[in-house]
Design a protein around this nucleic acid. Sequence first.
DNA 1: CTTGCTAGTGTGACCGGTCACAACCTCCCG
DNA 2: CGGGAGGTTGTGACCGGTCACACTAGCAAG
Lengths: 376, 376
Amino acid sequence: MRLPPSRKRVTIRDVARFARVSHQTVSRFINGVDHIAPLTRRRVEQAVAKLGFHPSHIARSLVSRQTKTVGLVMGDVASPFFPDVARGAEDVLAAAGYCLILSSSRRDPERELRNVRHLLERSTDGLILGAPRCPPDELAAMARRAGIPMVFLNREVKGSHVAAVWIGWPAATAEVVAYLAGLGHRRIALVVPSRSDARVGNREDWYRPALAQAGLGPDRALIFRDAMSLEGGYAAGQRLLALDRRPTAAICHNDVMAIGLLQACAERQVRVPHDLSIVGWDDVPYASLVTPPLTTVRVPRYELGQAAARRLLDLMAGRPVHLPELPLALELVRRQSCRPPGGGSSGTRGFRSGASDSVVKGGARRTRRSSSSSSS
Amino acid sequence: MRLPPSRKRVTIRDVARFARVSHQTVSRFINGVDHIAPLTRRRVEQAVAKLGFHPSHIARSLVSRQTKTVGLVMGDVASPFFPDVARGAEDVLAAAGYCLILSSSRRDPERELRNVRHLLERSTDGLILGAPRCPPDELAAMARRAGIPMVFLNREVKGSHVAAVWIGWPAATAEVVAYLAGLGHRRIALVVPSRSDARVGNREDWYRPALAQAGLGPDRALIFRDAMSLEGGYAAGQRLLALDRRPTAAICHNDVMAIGLLQACAERQVRVPHDLSIVGWDDVPYASLVTPPLTTVRVPRYELGQAAARRLLDLMAGRPVHLPELPLALELVRRQSCRPPGGGSSGTRGFRSGASDSVVKGGARRTRRSSSSSSS
DNA sequence: CTTGCTAGTGTGACCGGTCACAACCTCCCG
DNA sequence: CGGGAGGTTGTGACCGGTCACACTAGCAAG
C-alpha cells in the first residue's frame, strides 16, 4: 500500500529543528499569522527555503476540516455549457482561494450519484450541480446529510434547503416571440423535446403566455415534439414542413434541434429564412457556422457559473443569502435565419438562401443581403 | 477557521466502541482484509450501518500517502479534445479505483503552471498533461521533484524521465496526401498556423516526406500560414484563392481553419469541392454540419485518454512500461468536401455546391450527388 | 508436553499539520 | 515595586485513519 519510502517528505518539524524553533512557530510562519520576531522569521524563512518545504494540504485538511475545494458536476462535459460555466465558477472560486474540481456524469443518473457521493466523501467543501439527472431532492438530501452545501445550476428546485441559480427563461421566451411577432409572423411553431429537459423544464409552459402577450393564440398543431437531438429536430422538421398551412417561423428548444430542422429544410428545398424563419436556443459555438447563420438566444453561461460560485461561497461561509435568486438575463443574437414572412422571390430559386453570407468574426456582424431588411 | 462543530463526525473509534471491538478491527472490516470472525463482522457491520459511518478519505490519504486521485490538465476545456480525452481517461482510471479531477489552464502558461503546482501540492497521485503551454521539461522537472508521475498527452517529449502518449501524425499526413493524390490532385496547398501548434508540432515537417512519397514535389508557394483560428483560415484562404494558378486541393491544420477557408470560398463563389477540395483535421463535432460536410481526419481522442491513463497507472504502480509509446492510428473521414480536380460544371454555377446534402446521422453516410463519384 | 502455525484481536505509535493553553519576557502604569 | 497587558514562543493533545507488532486461543505435529 504505502509508497516506496522515496525521498522522505519534509515536515514542519524538520524545518523547526533546522531553524531551532518549535514546530508551532513554523506553522505560524507559513500561515502568516501572529507575531513573530523578525529574527526568528528570518531563520524560519531560510530553513523553509533550504529544505524545500511545502505544507501538506492533506494534513491541513484533516484538522481544519476544510479542503478549500469545490466540486462541479455536470451532466455532460461535451455540452457547450460546461466550459463556460466552469470558467465562470473557477474565476470566482480561485479568487477566494478555492480550487475547482470538475466531474462529468455523462448523462447517466447512476454515474452522477456515484460521482456526487465520491465528491461528498472526498470532502469537497461545496458542490455545484448542473443539470442533474437524479431527483434533486435526493441529491440535496445526500448533501445535507454530509453537511456540505450544494447549489443547483440552472434549475428551479423547490424546498428551503436547496439553493439554486436560475435563468430568466420565461422573459426570454417572451422576447423571442415578440421579435418574431414584430417581424410579422403569426403562425409560429415550437420544436421541443418529447421529454422535458432537466435543464430548463418545460419550455412550452412559457411559450403559451408569451404568445398571449404577443396577441397570438396558442395552436396545439404547431407544437412539434421529438428527441432532443439533431435527428429529433430533423424528424420534427419533416412533419412541420409536410403541413398544408405551414408556419412561417419556428422556435426550437435548442440549437442542435434547430440545425436538424435546418437540414430538413435544405432537403426539401425550403428556403431559410425566406420560407421559414428559425430561432435556436443556446448559441452554441457552431450556431454561426451553419448556413444560414442561426439566430439564437445566448445564455449567460459564464455569468451563471459565477453566480453559482458566489452563492456557494456565501453558503459555505454561513453568510445569509447575499445573492437573491435573481434570474440572469438572456440575449437574443440576431443572425440570418429570421426575416419577415412571405419574403419576395429573391432570385435564389431552388437553392438554399444565405449562401453568400460570411460568418467570419462571430457571424453576428454583416448582413449584406439583397432583399428586404430585417427591421432591427 | 474550524467549521462550526455541527454534527460531530462519526469516526472509526465510535464504531469500535459501539461494536465493542478495537478500532483496528473496524479498520480491517472497512478494508475487507484479514480474517474477521463472522460474529464480530456482523457486529461491526451493524454498528457501521447504525451510526452511518463513512471513512475519511483525508485521514486515509494522510497515512497511506495516496489520494487515489489523478489530475488532468488541459489547455482548453472548450476544445473539442477535452471531453473525449477526459472520458477515456476517466473510464480507465475509475476501473482502477482512481478518481479523475479536471483542470483547465485556458491556454495561459502562468495559469497552467499554477494549476499544475496546485495539483502537485494537493497530492494527486499522478498527472496527465495535455497541450502544455509551458516548456514540458520544466513541468516534468516539477513533477519529478514532487515525486509524482506525469504523462504528456499528444506530444513528443525528449528526455528519459518523461512519459508521453503520442499519435501517428506522420502516417496520417501521408494517408491524406495519398488520398488527394489518388483523386488526381497535383497542386495541394497546406494551410497551417503561423506558430507551430504545441499539440502537434510542425505539421509541415511531415507534409514534405508525405508529398515525396506520393511522387509530388514540395512547393513553397503553396504553404499558407496564418493564425490558428477561423479568421486565420479565412485570411489564408483569401491569399490562396487570389493565386493565378490555384491549387486544386488544400489540407488544413485543423477543422476550424478549414471552415474559415470554406467561408473564404463561399464569399468568392469558389465551389467546394468542384473547384477546390478541402481536408480538415480533428473531426470536431460540427465538421459534419457545415456546407459541404467536411472531409477530415478523426483523431482517436477517447483512445488517447485511455492510453494516457493506462500509462500513468503503470507509472504509479512502478510497473515497467507496459504500453510502448506506440502511436495511435488516425482515421480519414470521407465526407463531401473532396472530389477529383477539374470537376465538370454540374449546373450549380455561382452557388455553393453540396447544398442538397443531408448530414443527419453523423453526416458520413449518404452522398446522393448527381456528379461524378469520389472513388472510394 | 512442548513447539509451531494460523486465525482473530488489541495496543500504541504515527502521518503532518492545527488548536488550546501555558510560559516567558518586556514594558508601562499606579 | 507589584501587577496587568501584550508580544513571542513552546508543549502536548488532537484530527481520523493505518501500520507494526504483540497477544491469545486453538489445533496439529513432533
